[in-house]
Design a protein around this nucleic acid. Structure first.
Lengths: 98, 98
DNA sequence: CGCCCAACTTTGTCTTGCAAAGTAATGCTT
DNA sequence: AAGCATTACTTTGCAAGACAAAGTTGGGCG
């Protein structure tokens, strides 16, 4: 039926799924905007972003315009992994809605 | 945008998501069939099933036909929670596929 | 210089998944 | 009856991970 082992644990975690979904909707998000949207603490958000970055899913751009302003975006790899993840979600929905 | 806090952690965990999806496709599954489909160890599977049962999501039926044969099915509550979970998945897919 | 703010890092705690091994109950086999 | 297998479950132990809170760094500005 399904291979649930295929579910990407990096993406599947609730907080990171939130990040990935937001990043998929816009080209780029600032740290502050992500934090406001997701209502996460700095430390927690940074940690999840680092996890995603370590897996090559998100790119980090550091600028200092007035204030430091770090922004995040999906890499090609990240976008691909996310689409693949969404495909599994679609299969689950198809199975779960008779 | 989305309220990611709404994601039901009981269902969202990979292994239990597998269980719930299977239970949604058929009225009832035996322990052995679940185990074979999901390729999980006894202990691990029993634990996740107990978690789902403790939350009132699955019903347990114990019979002894030839061998002990425990079977599991979704409760009304479980079905409802799963449908709600699927609704969130749909929103994520909608956002993630432009 | 001192303060604020953004973006980290560190520390610590607490939960959780998961495997491996052990156990109880039952039935089959010899 | 004795031994063995199987199912379902418990226990133990460990390792990973989430998360909060507090501390740190570095730039901009009054």
């Amino acid at each position: 039926m399904f291979d649930f082992e295929k579910i990407d644990k990096v993406i599947h975690e609730k907080a990171r799924l939130g990040i990935m979904t937001l990043l998929a909707t816009r080209a780029s998000w600032s740290f502050q905007d992500l934090k406001a949207q997701l209502e996460m603490s700095d430390g927690n958000l940074v940690t999840h972003l680092r996890t995603l970055h370590d897996h090559g899913y998100v790119a980090v751009t550091k600028e200092i315009i007035d204030r430091p302003q770090t922004s995040y975006s999906l890499t090609t790899k990240g976008r691909g992994a996310f689409q693949e993840y969404l495909t599994i979600l679609e299969q689950i929905i198809k199975a779960g809605r008779p």
